[in-house]
Design a protein around this nucleic acid. Structure first.
Length: 285
DNA sequence: TTAAATGTTTAAAT
DNA sequence: CATTTAAACATTTA
């Protein structure tokens, strides 16, 4: 999925498009994508969307007293369609540009003014859950999230992370430590700060952790500015695709030269995820 | 055919 | 209790 920048891009776009629309009805063909019962379904009909925002990677569509929580996981997308206008982002598949619904469509919301919102999810890991807005932060999906990666101060990041006795990449991916970072931006920020992803967080210097936090924040901001990493088929409100993947330093550049020293980028599994790094700059082995 | 894919949760082991 | 690892979820593409 979509990490923080992609989620932020979706949220910003939808927050300009969805508020004011009422839910006329909706359907879903995969109950795990929208696990609600008939009573909950009735409660949603007729509600008006008030705003769209996020906590970590969880998208929140507020409908007054109720809210929908959306997690895109690895391959989820949200696509808004109204007449010829289309806005969507998430995993790069043809679903963002071809006719909808398609075979990855799990949920369709029919909205007022002939608008529709599609939740597509090829691998079916994503979900949409219903909660009361005033109990939002107690919902298990967001209750344990750490401070947001985009706004945490480098000093606070260093203080929190330095107490952890696990690998620094595992820390970056742990949403209870910092919320929002995922595999791409973990690799990118670790390369920028020249840190070995397997180093124990507690063994890193204060300087290194501050540097890592600064680089993580700057790469997240750059990606948001470029429309995220949905390189293929993401369309912003102006019909422009996400450009961030044109700027990656290590992610999916296995075998290509390091942009700092020329050594070939390697891939290894760290914290259970494919990890891309420069063996020289990041002192691997 | 095998590996890997922008994520999280859970069980089992250390 | 903290951490690590593997597996699970489900599907497509290289």
């Amino acid at each position: 999925m979509p990490e923080l920048p992609e989620v932020q891009v979706v949220v910003s776009g939808l927050d300009r498009l969805l508020p004011g629309h009422t839910i006329i009805d909706f359907s879903f063909d995969w109950p795990k994508s929208l696990p609600i019962d008939a009573a909950d379904k009735d409660r949603l009909i007729g509600l008006k969307i008030s705003k769209v925002w996020r906590l970590g990677k969880v998208i929140i569509i507020e409908l007054g007293d109720l809210s929908l929580l959306v997690h895109l996981k690895l391959t989820g997308q949200l696509v808004y369609v109204k007449a010829k206008k289309r806005f969507g982002a998430g995993h790069p598949t043809a679903s963002l540009i071809d006719a909808l619904p398609d075979k990855t469509t799990r949920v369709v919301f029919n909205l007022s003014d002939d608008a529709r919102l599609f939740f597509n999810d090829l691998r079916k890991f994503g979900w949409i859950k219903l909660t009361q807005t005033n109990k939002l932060r107690q919902h298990q999906a967001v209750a344990s999230l750490g401070p947001d990666a985009l706004t945490i101060t480098p000093a606070r990041f260093a203080k929190i992370v330095s107490k952890r006795h696990k690998g620094i990449k595992a820390c970056l991916l742990d949403q209870t430590i910092v919320a929002g970072c995922g595999n791409i931006y973990a690799d990118e920020s670790l390369w920028m700060s020249q840190i070995n992803p397997e180093t124990l967080a507690a063994n890193l210097s204060h300087f290194e952790l501050v540097s890592l936090a600064k680089n993580l924040k700057s790469v997240l901001r750059l990606s948001i500015q470029k429309g995220g990493s949905t390189s293929r088929n993401y369309l912003n409100a102006q019909g422009q695709p996400g450009q961030y993947l044109n700027f990656v330093k290590v992610y999916q550049r296995t075998g290509q030269p390091c942009k700092r020293c020329g050594q070939l980028i390697i891939r290894k599994v760290v914290a259970g995820r494919g990890t891309h790094c420069c063996p020289t700059c990041q002192k691997i082995q």
